[in-house]
């Protein structure tokens, strides 16, 4: 059997602080195909962000391994670009410079300065931030900052795009708007995406598959649900679709009914 594009194999993470050990993740297995959009959903503190950081290489595994495109993940790198929850733009750089920093680093020696400039602008254009390219992060709204964060990640041309609750800090309208943008971009670019979320509607609307995690400590994969909805998806059209409603119901059932048990 051919290995999946991104393979999380028997991953366990234990944090050791002095004499106290806390096992956060235990025996996580997940296979993600190229071009697939997978969400990881779970209650706060269940270790889903830890799992994303493990795939990013920011946190080392205690047991198991993460394999991306036949290579083991051992350190962070631009082929696994992260969109952080709180945007993480550098406040002393303009919007364009923030993206350019990533482009210059990733494509040093591969693209000329003019090409790197065009590539920066192209990615800002994808997230519709060209007009604000000379603004500072402090001068733009939270949704716009997140757009720039996405542009920066896309500009690295990652093998897998990691989204860490990218819309968590935004208001509902801005969030819906950004979700639509992410869907559009994903349809166009066919990125492989791993997204952390705690929003059921967001998970169902955006994902091909939803990974539901059990509560920590020692969190694991509880259930994996495929969302067989045709793309492109329209949030108004799918709202009454039985597949959508059914998927939504089973995620809610997993998150709330089982927790009470």
């Amino acid at each position: 059997m051919a290995k999946a594009y991104l393979s999380i194999e028997a991953v366990g993470v234990t944090f050791q602080k002095g004499a106290s050990r806390s096992e956060v993740l235990r025996d996580i297995n997940l296979q993600v195909d190229q071009g697939e959009f997978v969400s990881i959903i779970g209650h706060s503190g269940c270790g889903k962000s830890t799992l994303l950081n493990v795939v990013a290489g920011l946190i080392p595994v205690t047991t198991g391994a993460v394999i991306l495109d036949r290579e083991a993940v051992e350190a962070p790198g631009p082929e696994r670009a992260v969109v952080f929850q709180n945007h993480s733009l550098l406040p002393w750089l303009s919007v364009q410079e923030n993206v350019r920093l990533a482009v210059d680093k990733v494509f040093a020696g591969k693209k000329s300065a003019a090409e790197r400039r065009d590539w920066t602008l192209h990615n800002l254009d994808l997230v519709k931030m060209t007009a604000a390219r000379d603004k500072r992060p402090s001068e733009i709204s939270g949704g716009m900052k997140q757009r720039v964060g996405i542009a920066r990640a896309l500009a690295m041309q990652p093998k897998v795009l990691l989204l860490d609750e990218p819309f968590g800090a935004l208001d509902a309208l801005t969030r819906a708007h950004l979700q639509d943008s992410v869907m559009e971009i994903q349809t166009a670019l066919k990125n492989t995406v791993l997204m952390i979320t705690h929003d059921v509607d967001e998970a169902v609307l955006l994902s091909d598959r939803i990974v539901m995690m059990t509560n920590g400590p020692r969190a694991g994969v509880g259930q994996i649900l495929s969302v067989d909805l045709a793309r492109p998806r329209d949030r108004l059209a799918v709202a009454g679709n039985p597949t959508y409603v059914g998927a939504r119901a089973s995620v809610i059932e997993f998150l709330y009914a089982r927790r009470a048990a």
Partner: peptide, 28 residues
């Protein structure tokens, strides 16, 4: 902030690049 450090790690900035592009401006 850890965020800036994480950005630097994802971008694989070298120590010199980290010093001039992240550390110095963040500490100014």
């Amino acid at each position: 902030p850890d965020d800036y450090v994480n950005v630097a790690r994802v971008l694989r900035l070298s120590p010199v690049e980290y010093f001039f592009k992240i550390l110095l401006p963040a500490t100014t």
